[in-house]
Amino acid sequence: MNPGNGGWVIGLSLLAALVLGVFHLPEWAPAWLGWLRPNWLLLVLFFWAIELPHRVGLIAVWILGLLVDVLYAEPLGLNGFVLASVTYVAWRFFERLRMYSVLQQALLVFVLALSAEFLRVFAIGLASERAWGWSVLTSPLVTMCLWPFLFLLLLRIRTGIRVE
């Protein structure tokens, strides 16, 4: 089995998550839709970290986090920390997590996304007067609801292209 197979799929899915993350709605869309923006990157990264823990390195994830910080205009290092923590949790428990049902995984995703969101609000609040609203809660909820779909989609891609 070639251990380096399909690295581009991982890269491409992460890039897609980045693009979805900065995608903005057309002008005619109602503004409250912005509250429902899921944490795409967390979902995709969590999937690869429990499916292929040997392919996701903490340093690489940290660097990816730096890119995200600049993309989202957030304090440098914030997303690196968040994503690296998510990866670490997935690494630590990946055998157990694979045994969980998709719904149990979704619950864990919710907890992770919620803590990530709180950490973000806290770190941003230290530096600026940016207010925070219900999106702290709604965004992780949407992230949780998306997990089953994204999980099945990525699993199909993974088995189809044989990413190892």
Partner: peptide, 11 residues
């Protein structure tokens, strides 16, 4: 070319 995707900031 882009909008910062955060409902609490306008950049």
């Amino acid at each position: 070319v882009g909008i910062i995707p955060d409902t609490n900031t306008f950049q």
